[in-house]
Simulated assay, not measured.
Amino acid sequence: MRAPRFLALAAAGVLAVSPAACGSATEAADAPQPSASGGFSVRDPWVKAADKGMTAAFGTLVNDGSADVTVVAASSPVSPMELHEMAMQDGAMVMRPKQGGLVVKAGGSHVLEPGGDHLMLMNLTRPVRAGDEVTFTLTFADGRTTDVRAVAKPFTGAGESYAPSMAPR
């Protein structure tokens, strides 16, 4: 498990991006987001602001339930989405789809962070600007879903780039 503080998020069906007042969107997104999915929530969800191309979503997936859960998909009307990881390949760090989904152990958490596991928003159809609220629907291996709201934030990060050349197919 990675040290928290860089946040994470997961997604899968409906994503709505709309301008929101920073105060109210931030307060709503910073609170742990309860779920209809039995003790699952996302703590501190956020999205890296971007005008076009690709961006990513982050936060901490929290499972207070008694059984492991696996997030298997993420999608959105404003952008196709994929679950991604950063991994060593041929001596270089590369971004690639996360095989098997994002497993959150019972009573545990899973951090989505820049330079690690994250949710990719591919080929944005409109800008995601700082202060926008982004709503995601996460899909679990058993078919259940849960909605998550995240605020878009400016972030230059540790030099990672969410460019097509980093996502080999």
Rank of each mutant, 00 (worst) to 15 (best):
residue 68 D to K: 13
residue 50 A to G: 10
residue 48 K to G: 02
residue 37 S to F: 07
residue 75 S to W: 06
residue 45 P to D: 05
residue 44 D to P: 00
residue 38 G to I: 01
residue 53 G to E: 05
residue 71 V to E: 06
residue 95 M to H: 15
residue 64 D to Y: 08
residue 97 P to M: 00
residue 79 S to D: 08
residue 83 L to Y: 06
residue 81 M to P: 00
residue 90 D to Y: 11
residue 98 K to I: 05
residue 94 V to P: 00
residue 39 G to D: 00
residue 54 M to V: 00
residue 38 G to R: 11
residue 70 T to Q: 12
residue 51 D to T: 11
residue 48 K to Y: 04
residue 80 P to F: 08
residue 50 A to Y: 11
residue 69 V to D: 00
residue 72 V to M: 03
residue 98 K to R: 14
residue 37 S to K: 10
residue 60 T to D: 06
residue 49 A to M: 03
residue 96 R to H: 06
residue 70 T to V: 15
residue 43 R to P: 00
residue 88 M to W: 13
residue 49 A to N: 01
residue 53 G to M: 06
residue 43 R to D: 09
residue 72 V to D: 03
residue 93 M to R: 14
residue 38 G to A: 10
residue 42 V to R: 13
residue 72 V to W: 04
residue 40 F to L: 11
residue 42 V to I: 15
residue 74 A to Q: 09
residue 57 A to E: 04
residue 37 S to C: 10
residue 49 A to R: 01
residue 65 G to D: 01
residue 68 D to S: 10
residue 89 Q to F: 10
residue 75 S to N: 15
residue 52 K to W: 08
residue 38 G to T: 01
residue 82 E to G: 09
residue 45 P to A: 06
residue 93 M to S: 05
residue 92 A to E: 04
residue 92 A to M: 09
residue 93 M to E: 02
residue 95 M to Q: 15
residue 60 T to K: 08
residue 45 P to F: 05
residue 68 D to C: 06
residue 78 V to D: 10
residue 76 S to D: 12
residue 79 S to K: 08
residue 47 V to C: 08
residue 53 G to L: 08
residue 42 V to C: 07
residue 67 A to H: 12
residue 58 F to D: 02
residue 77 P to S: 05
residue 42 V to W: 12
residue 68 D to P: 03
residue 96 R to M: 14
residue 93 M to H: 03
residue 85 E to A: 02
residue 73 A to R: 15
residue 88 M to K: 14
residue 86 M to Y: 13
residue 82 E to R: 15
residue 38 G to F: 07
residue 71 V to H: 09
residue 96 R to Q: 15
residue 96 R to C: 07
residue 94 V to A: 03
residue 63 N to A: 09
residue 63 N to T: 06
residue 70 T to H: 11
residue 69 V to G: 00
residue 87 A to P: 00
residue 42 V to L: 07
residue 53 G to Q: 09
residue 64 D to W: 08
residue 75 S to K: 08
residue 96 R to P: 02
residue 44 D to T: 10
residue 68 D to M: 07
residue 39 G to L: 01
residue 60 T to V: 14
residue 96 R to Y: 03
residue 95 M to P: 00
residue 67 A to W: 02
residue 57 A to Y: 02
residue 76 S to C: 12
residue 70 T to S: 13
residue 46 W to T: 09
residue 79 S to M: 06
residue 79 S to Y: 10
residue 86 M to W: 13
residue 64 D to H: 15
residue 98 K to W: 04
residue 73 A to H: 15
residue 65 G to M: 02
residue 77 P to L: 00
residue 86 M to Q: 13
residue 58 F to R: 03
residue 98 K to E: 04
residue 59 G to Y: 12
residue 86 M to G: 05
residue 89 Q to N: 04
residue 95 M to F: 13
residue 84 H to M: 15
residue 80 P to D: 15
residue 68 D to G: 03
